[in-house]
């Protein structure tokens, strides 16, 4: 049986990247605890609009943990301190205590400028992907699935890497604002497969160069990213990326 709880939402307001920004608060009363956190924010926004105020702006799309749009820093942790492997949209009000104050902030990182409130510009990730996160194939019919044999373990591991949804929580959690967990997952998902090996050296160099150019920091192995990643990507991906990168550099 769901019970109702009341909470105070302390949320970040910021009108564009240049604005200083500040916190606003709103009391949410009698919210059924099987409401998702984002639904609670929808309810809050209806109430704000009812008072003639502007709603709190945040990113969201699929609301089922697959698209990577939701991106809230909740009570000091990207995606909130829920069970491992959950996105902001998979967080429910039953995880909070009656009377609690919930603080909501944007991803704060030089690589992700604020557009408004908690909506940040994550175009940098797309630019990194464009730099090399693909394999060059000829347009046309896909070839037969069994034409290239791939060991099951490799396929599974590549799939685990590919499950990174590009949310950016790893960057938000990192004290250096490093995008290494994201980049290494995207490099690994291809490097592990025969189709990706052909351009592996070029890819690793291009993606790392783009990441540096866009103002993301370096990895110092603090593993904060791993702890918050909603898809449980591990820093062994980073080790793999470093290997790919060093091999590519040595070959130059």
């Amino acid at each position: 049986m769901a019970k109702n709880i009341s909470v105070t939402i302390k949320f970040w307001k910021q009108n564009g990247p240049k604005d200083k920004g500040h916190f606003d608060t709103h009391e949410l009363k009698n919210i059924p605890d099987d409401t998702s956190f984002l639904e609670a924010l929808d309810i809050m926004n209806e109430e704000l609009i009812g008072e003639g105020r502007e709603p709190f702006v945040f990113d969201h799309d699929c609301r089922e943990g697959i698209c990577g749009m939701c991106s809230l820093y909740i009570n000091g942790t990207p995606h909130g301190k829920t069970e491992r492997g959950a996105t902001t949209c998979q967080l429910y009000m039953r995880k909070f205590k009656d009377g609690e104050t919930i603080t909501v902030e944007p991803w704060r990182s030089a690589g992700f400028p604020v557009i408004k409130d908690c909506m940040v510009d994550r175009n940098a990730f797309d630019k990194i992907m464009q730099a090399g996160g693909y394999t060059t194939v000829r347009t046309g019919q896909a070839q037969d699935a069994n034409a290239i044999l791939i060991p099951k373990e490799d396929a599974d591991e590549a799939m685990d890497c590919a499950s990174c949804i590009g949310c950016g929580a790893c960057v938000a959690a990192c004290k250096n604002g490093s995008a290494m967990l994201f980049v290494s997952s995207k490099v690994s998902q291809l490097a592990l497969l025969p189709q990706g090996k052909v351009e592996a050296a070029k890819r690793a160099k291009a993606m790392v160069a783009k990441m540096d150019e866009l103002g993301f920091g370096n990895c110092t192995n603090t593993r904060a990213c791993e702890a918050v990643c909603p898809k449980c990507e591990t820093i062994s991906n980073i080790a793999r990326l470093n290997r790919e990168f060093i091999c590519a550099k040595l070959a130059d």
């Binding site: 564009g16 609009i49 709603p55």
Partner: peptide, 13 residues
């Protein structure tokens, strides 16, 4: 209909 805010910049409503 009520749309808060202004038409300048991002207005999700």
């Amino acid at each position: 209909l009520f749309i808060p805010g202004s038409k300048e910049g991002l207005n999700v409503e």
